[in-house]
Amino acid sequence: MGRMNELDKILEKRSVPEMSDNLVSRIVATARPELFGRESTSVKERRRGWLGHLFDGILMPQPALVLSLFLLAGLFIGTTVDLSTLSAQDDMASYLYINDDDGYGDWL
């Protein structure tokens, strides 16, 4: 025990030089607010963040309910609209047809 006490006395003499006066201000200045959280932002996280921002604008309190309603609406439209009355030709005709009162003809 005595031997260790002698060693401890020597160990206690060990000292540390004073740090630079500006060390604290240097650290605080280097850690600028704009650097906050940068290290943890990987490419994947940044991408997720971008998508997150996009979806943040859409409020969907109950996504399952909203999706169910969309599905039901789709089924309803699908069963009520008679698709057999429509033909591709009619569709195209109504799309290309313009007012023929100006004398330029019926078709483009």
Binding site: I27, L35, R38
Partner: peptide, 14 residues
């Protein structure tokens, strides 16, 4: 001093 500065910067960034 560099070691302490690096450690605090790591703390700030993460």
């Amino acid at each position: 001093e560099d070691i302490v500065q690096d450690a605090f910067l790591k703390l700030w960034k993460n």
